[in-house]
Design a protein around this nucleic acid. Structure first.
Length: 472
RNA sequence: GGCGGAGUAGCCAAGUGGUAAGGCAGGGCUCUGCAAAAGCCUCAUCCGUCGGUUCGAUUCCGACCUCCGCCUCCA
């Protein structure tokens, strides 16, 4: 089934087809983090979304090359390096490591390439030189090099591909007025920023003098290096459409004369507890904050993946509790299925995945990544499986096929399996004591122990095959 | 002010010109000595408000109300 995606370039849902003539390879670039602090839950929505797109493409049979940049030189970073009296490397290294740890905790597949801006200064300089040579960039009296939107448009290029812009009436707000740079036009943006005293030792030599790259140029330089002058997919948060992505297009197409990206995908932002995230409202969370509250990465991932990517999503702590329950339901069902399918005496080798679940799931994803419909397919499947498990109408072969289907679906969802918690000896001892009390029909005693276990974070369930301990 | 997105049950959230998926919470039931983050069932005469088009509108059109995003370095 053909995958259809909403392309910001055309503002419409289009059938996705890669540039690769063989229809196999897909180049995908996602704007990554600026490593000046821990990423917050809003950032994570975008990165989990990117991972979901990648997994969907891989599920669809494509060979994806996933590139995510790490922005490790930028105004805020330099400011904090100065404040903390540290070095650029030490400072950004700390947050980069934290970012990659969090990415893993959220079940994201690691991007194939994670280029850093500071490792690509020569490529960035080369790209700027190309733009200067082609006459769409100029060096101003302050020493910085700017991209000229007027010259670019003068070559017949289109500035404003991702959104409607009225360049003549660009609002000259406070931020523009406060701009101290010497640009020819307010819409122009910096490619190379001349060194200033506040930069400390964060600067590189270049044909334009000492300085550092502008914000947008690194993405053009690194994506072109990693994926070629024209590639398939570029994604990021919706706020990046303008100016960041628009400027990336301008720089790239201005330098190569070729179309930059075929499909642009933008993820919507989220609200937290119905409000815009802010530190003063107390609804500003990093992943670490949520883990400290006792939630797990897979619960956060599940919640972030319950809504369509183009809709603003309301992230709540209540929703996180719901995520816990919903995942427990899936875990329970898949666990039982696995037990039945993998019992040694009836195990079937390489069962054919049951088509019903996969078909519905695939159709949902193909429809511009309708994840809600995909989850509906999953939960209706869970209910059906539970019924069949309850009335014993599921053979080991059926279970194997169902499990095989689940594993395919799971490869996209990426929620993994609940980590098998080590059962402490103390808990095992209590459970055994309870079983003994039960056997002796001392139910009062067994209930007391059950409460005690619960207080210690363990739920005990009686099943036909004996007791089952679960970590809360 | 310009451009764009959204208002669906207690909460989260899909969807359609023909009468509302799914999850959580709630309620009922089953299993159980009793239970259970165990299982099943149930849970919107109705989709922001008011008009219009239509045999029929939550869906299309118009107005209004409310919320949100971008408009030069923010996911």
């Amino acid at each position: 089934m053909a995958l259809k995606l909403f392309n910001t370039l055309t503002r419409s849902v289009q059938e996705f087809a890669p540039l690769d003539p063989a229809g196999k390879k897909v180049g995908m670039y996602c704007c990554g983090p600026t490593v000046y602090d821990f990423a917050h839950i809003g950032n994570w929505r975008t990165f989990v979304f990117a991972d979901f797109v990648r997994r969907t493409l891989e599920f669809s049979g494509y060979d994806v090359q996933h590139v995510m940049n790490i922005t490790d030189v930028e105004d805020k970073i330099i400011k904090r390096v100065r404040e903390n009296k540290t070095t650029l490397r030490d400072f950004t290294g700390k947050y980069e490591t934290a970012f990659l740890d969090d990415l893993k905790a959220l079940g994201c597949r690691e991007p194939h390439q994670k280029p850093c801006a500071t490792d690509h200064i020569p490529e960035i300089i080369a790209l700027i030189e190309k733009l200067v040579t082609r006459g769409v960039a100029y060096q101003a009296s302050d020493g910085s090099v700017y991209f000229s939107i007027e010259k670019y448009r003068g070559c017949g290029c289109h500035y404003g591909q991702l959104l409607k812009l009225n360049l003549d009436e660009l609002r000259t707000g406070e931020r523009v007025a406060a701009d101290e740079y010497e640009k020819e036009s307010v819409a122009d943006f910096a490619l190379w920023k001349a060194r200033v005293p506040d930069d400390g030792d964060v600067f590189w030599p270049s044909p334009f003098g000492e300085g550092r790259p502008g914000w947008h140029i690194e993405c053009s330089a690194m994506s072109i290096k990693a994926l070629g002058e024209t590639f398939d997919l570029h994604l990021g948060g919706e706020d990046l459409k303008f100016p960041h992505h628009e400027d990336e297009i301008a720089q790239s197409e201005g330098a190569t004369g070729k179309p930059f990206v075929k499909f642009w995908l933008h993820g919507a932002h989220l609200l937290v507890e119905g409000k815009k995230m802010s530190k003063s409202l107390g609804n500003f969370f990093t992943l670490r904050d949520l883990l400290a509250k006792g939630f797990t990465g897979r619960e956060v991932r599940y919640l972030l993946l319950t809504a369509h990517y183009r809709e603003t999503f309301n992230f709540t702590i209540d929703g996180l509790h719901g995520a816990k329950s919903a995942l427990a339901r899936i875990d329970e069902c898949v666990g039982k299925l696995r037990e039945l399918a993998e019992s040694p005496k009836s195990k079937i080798q390489n069962p054919k995945p049951e088509a019903a679940l996969i078909d519905r799931f695939t159709a949902a994803l193909a429809d511009d990544l309708n994840i809600s419909a995909a989850w509906a397919a999953v939960f209706e499947w869970v209910r059906e499986i539970n019924k069949r498990l309850a009335d014993s109408s599921l053979s080991a072969g059926d279970a194997g096929a169902a499990l095989a289907a689940w594993e395919k679906v799971e490869s996209v969802l990426g929620i993994g399996v609940k980590a098998d918690a080590e059962i402490p000896a103390e808990i095992t001892a209590l459970a055994e004591e309870r079983t003994a009390a039960k056997k002796a029909k001392d139910f009062k005693r067994s209930d007391v122990i059950r409460d005690e276990l619960k207080a210690k974070g363990w739920v005990i369930e009686d099943t036909p095959k004996g007791i089952k301990l679960k970590k809360i």
